[in-house]
Design a protein around this nucleic acid. Structure first.
Lengths: 132, 132
DNA sequence: TTAGTTGTTAGAGCGTACTCTAAGTCAAGC
DNA sequence: GCTTGACTTAGAGTACGCTCTAACAACTAA
């Protein structure tokens, strides 16, 4: 028996809103999901795996356009053309690595500023002590 | 002699657009900049240092609201209350560190997928060789 | 039977951070 | 004097990624 989850359950499981799940389906990020007899969506395990991977891409800042391109490749050539998909992911990995690098460099400057404030505080205290 | 730069020059130097520079001034991120006799902005070196630090905050993803709060503190208490500013930066540093952590974790999953595609490609090639 | 819950759709609205437009000013060069 | 170009302003427009609304459908429990 395969578990078929409702949109609410998937929203909880993936930390995406039901709005977002429907939105992603509308714009082709998620292939049309199966339906129960009443027309309600029922997500399969493979739907959920796909959504979870999408979410990884999203959380690394991949724009929706690029996720759409990736989704298109997967659907168009399910069992071949890994190269193109791999290339897309590798380009993204490179971009994210560079972003992490940038974040670390900029964070170092913020750290420097925090240290600067610590020094100023220390001097202020010293001054107060001398005048006590 | 202090160098006083035009908005164009500052845009080049900081990699922000002239629109953005004016926008930042409008919304209080940058204190009103000095003017030439013709009303054109002239940025001082300390203006530029401030803009460059703002840019660091921006590039680490600090929202404009928070930068406004920081700017307000700096202008309100220029020579005291370092504690509050320091706290703001420390909170931000924590948030950015966690974001970097998250990015690295999610990137690891992307890496795993890339590796997966490499393996599939290798199998595909092997198969083709056997049938050659 | 009726109220309540959970879903459906198309399409409108929103928050963020810019980005651009329109109309005008000012100084320099022809 | 006139054009050109760099600037000014207030305010409108844009791109992105959701987020919500309105109107309706289907099922359940009282």
């Amino acid at each position: 028996m395969t578990t078929a989850l409702t949109i609410q359950q998937v929203a909880h499981k993936t930390a995406l809103s039901v709005y977002t799940l429907r939105y992603y389906e509308r714009c082709g990020l998620i292939a049309p999901v199966g339906r129960a007899s009443n027309g309600h969506r029922r997500y399969s395990e493979s739907d959920i795996r796909w959504i979870e991977f999408l979410n990884r891409l999203r959380l690394t800042g991949m724009p929706i356009r690029q996720m759409q391109q990736y989704a298109r490749l997967v659907r168009q050539y399910p069992d071949t053309a890994f190269g193109e998909r791999k290339q897309l992911l590798e380009d993204h990995r490179k971009a994210v690595s560079e972003q992490i690098q940038q974040l670390q460099e900029n964070l170092a400057v913020v750290d420097w500023k925090i240290q600067h404030y610590s020094n100023l505080e220390a001097k202020l205290n010293e001054h107060n002590n001398l005048n006590a």
